[in-house]
């Protein structure tokens, strides 16, 4: 048994490192990942998850932590260890619930509420009912099947990039052009979704 006496990165070191640009940021993301990787084995034992499930949930927790650090929503009221541990516990519970039917939509509902509650009270129920027509899981699949350009622009939008950033990254002339392209891609997505839904409705009808 040999002990290494290498200096451990502090929370401040890791946070500062992750707030840098790539490629330096990648080094610190890796260090954050490695620092608490032992939690995976704990989760396998505690939550009775498979190792691959626990490992994916851990990566998810680290990714969320990184997003919070970059987005300044991690206020350092607790240590990184406590923060990562809490998020990881939630991810493990999500993983356990994902095995059960009808529980996966819970996160979607919370996200939808955030937007619907911006509407006047009398319109909220109507919009909620209309939203139920468009299943998030199917939309996600349709996004993955879109042409590369539309897929990239929609995923960039989903990651939270502004139109001006998408324009630079994907080579559009301006933010306005990027926005127009994105809205066109959303139109395509809607048509694609409806086509699949119509097909399904027809198939169900024939089966009856």
């Amino acid at each position: 048994m040999w002990l290494t006496f290498a200096k451990q990165a502090t929370d401040d070191d890791i946070i500062a490192g992750i707030c840098q640009d790539y490629p330096q940021r990648q080094v610190w993301e890796n260090r954050l990942y490695l620092k608490f990787r032992y939690l995976i084995k704990d989760a396998v034992w505690k939550h009775k998850l498979r190792e691959d499930e626990a490992s994916m949930a851990y990566s998810d927790a680290i990714l969320v932590t990184i997003k919070h650090i970059v987005g300044n929503t991690f206020e350092q009221r607790s240590s990184l260890k406590t923060y990562v541990y809490k998020i990881y516990q939630y991810k493990c519970m999500d993983c356990l619930r994902a095995a059960q039917a009808n529980k996966r939509g819970l996160g979607n509902q919370e996200n939808l509420d955030h937007y619907v509650e911006l509407l006047p009270d009398e319109q909220q129920d109507t919009i909620r009912q209309l939203c139920a027509k468009y299943e998030v899981a199917i939309l996600k699949r349709r996004i993955q099947l879109m042409d590369e350009r539309c897929q990239r622009i929609i995923l960039a939008w989903g990651e939270g990039y502004q139109d001006k950033e998408i324009a630079v990254d994907l080579g559009y002339q301006s933010a306005a052009v990027a926005k127009t392209s994105r809205l066109r891609c959303l139109e395509k997505l809607k048509k694609s979704y409806k086509a699949v839904k119509d097909l399904k409705t027809t198939a169900d009808g024939r089966a009856d």
């Binding site: 993301e29 490992s55 994916m56 990566s59 998810d60 680290i62 990714l63 996160g107 979607n108 996200n111 939808l112 937007y115 619907v116 919009i127 209309l130 939203c131 027509k133 468009y134 299943e135 998030v136 939309l139 996600k140 996004i143 993955q144 929609i154 995923l155 960039a156 939008w157 989903g158 990651e159 939270g160 959303l186 997505l189 809607k190 979704y193």
Partner: peptide
């Protein structure tokens, strides 16, 4: 359209996260 927009925004956010997660993992 508003309903579709909201659901596709949620779907895009989740899909982006899952794609990035897969890459990082």
């Amino acid at each position: 359209d508003a309903a579709f927009y909201l659901q596709s925004r949620i779907a895009a956010k989740q899909a982006a996260h899952e794609t990035l997660l897969e890459e990082k993992h």
